[in-house]
Design a protein around this nucleic acid. Structure first.
Lengths: 211, 211
DNA sequence: GGGTTGAATGTGACTTTATCACTGAAGTCC
DNA sequence: GGACTTCAGTGATAAAGTCACATTCAACCC
């Protein structure tokens, strides 16, 4: 059955009550969980699949902020839920995602009655802040070529990645042309093989991999 | 007396107990509240002055992430307090700062017993996430010249700012030389007057001010 | 199969930003 | 009034972003 570790820490009664009022939902790839400007309906606890959270600036450019996977909590929703402000970012399903939607009332109740639940929420917040701080540093100071290599290495596993240059540009927060040129250069150095919508990683050194 | 709005929402007993166990502290400009790698001792509630939070990346460059002022809560500390992880950033006092330090036990108790306190904490978290998301967008996509102009406008109030080019570079997350050149260009256009450690803002248009 | 279409990719030219390596200028401290 | 330190200016070059357009590929339709 649908489970999320933050619910495991609840006592029997509370868990039963919660599971009773929670909606289990399923989303296909490409589905948009929420987008900028929308208001939050409930707190999603991710129990499977993968969801990317990205934002589009006034400039019209987009950048991926972070990802959610199994056992994650949608941190952004918490703030929107409690303050009533709309989302500033957008969440897009990458791999068939399943989530438990916790309605506002239940969330309040859990925060009130379970220290373990509170800890889980706080941890999630802390992790997100950390993610974003690292991202700021990355975007502000690190070179695009090394970031690109690291990104490829991190998700190719010696194999290949199915992605367009445009999507990759959004991952890194840069322009498509920049990605195209850097990839071409990597191809010249026999580190990748390019084809339409797909990148085969052949000779990137593990040594350059950091996160 | 020392007051923080998040404590105002507590009931009489809880507030008395809290104020009893809280340490009021004072910090002069330049003082470092905490630095990267340190462990968190308690949650600071800022009740006066101004503190900037900045981080230094592996590259050795620094960037200012956000500021705290009256009635702010040091969001970063919450995560470090609850998870036991060390700080990743550094907090430096800019204007004589006063804060109430809430020890861990009291924090846990407040989270447990006051819905209003919880809401305050969550709001603070939400604001911080927002700040950082905006910063990411800013750093990734916006032009340095407009960011510089906006920064000057936001804190000059038609007067002048006491700051070195190096410090300004850290504010914007760029290199000192870049700031120097952009400022020189602004001077040529009669929009600022430069002197050692000080920038007089004379003719920047309000129209370019956002945030 | 040949043609049409739209998305994906390649690239030149140019601007902006970052980096490196200096030089000079302005304050501070004996 | 030097000696030192911090701050600021600048040329040369590299990296990254922008704009405009050319090319290529895959899919779809007769």
């Amino acid at each position: 059955m649908a489970r999320h570790s933050i619910l495991d820490s609840l006592n029997e009664t509370l868990r039963k009550e919660t599971l009773d009022k929670v909606r289990a939902m399923q989303f296909p790839p490409g589905q948009i969980l929420f987008s900028a400007g929308q208001h939050c309906q409930g707190l999603p606890l991710v129990i499977g699949g993968r969801v990317k959270v990205q934002m589009t600036g006034i400039s019209g450019h987009s950048i991926v902020l972070y990802r959610m996977g199994v056992d994650d909590i949608c941190t952004l929703s918490i703030g929107c839920l409690m303050t009533g402000r709309p989302y500033r970012a957008e969440a897009v399903v990458e791999e068939d995602a399943r989530a438990l939607m916790i309605p506002r009332g239940v969330f309040d109740r859990l925060m009130d009655q379970s220290a373990a639940f509170r800890l889980g929420i706080m941890e999630s917040y802390g992790r997100r802040l950390d993610d974003l701080m690292l991202l700021v540093e990355e975007v502000a100071f690190r070179r695009m070529d090394t970031r690109l290599e690291e990104w490829l290495l991190a998700r190719a596993n010696g194999g290949s990645v199915v992605i367009t240059h445009q999507e990759l540009a959004v991952e890194l927060g840069t322009a498509r042309e920049v990605v195209s040129r850097l990839l071409k250069e990597l191809e010249r150095r026999d580190m990748v093989k390019l084809s339409r919508g797909k990148i085969q990683v052949t000779g990137l050194l593990e040594s350059s991999a950091q996160l």
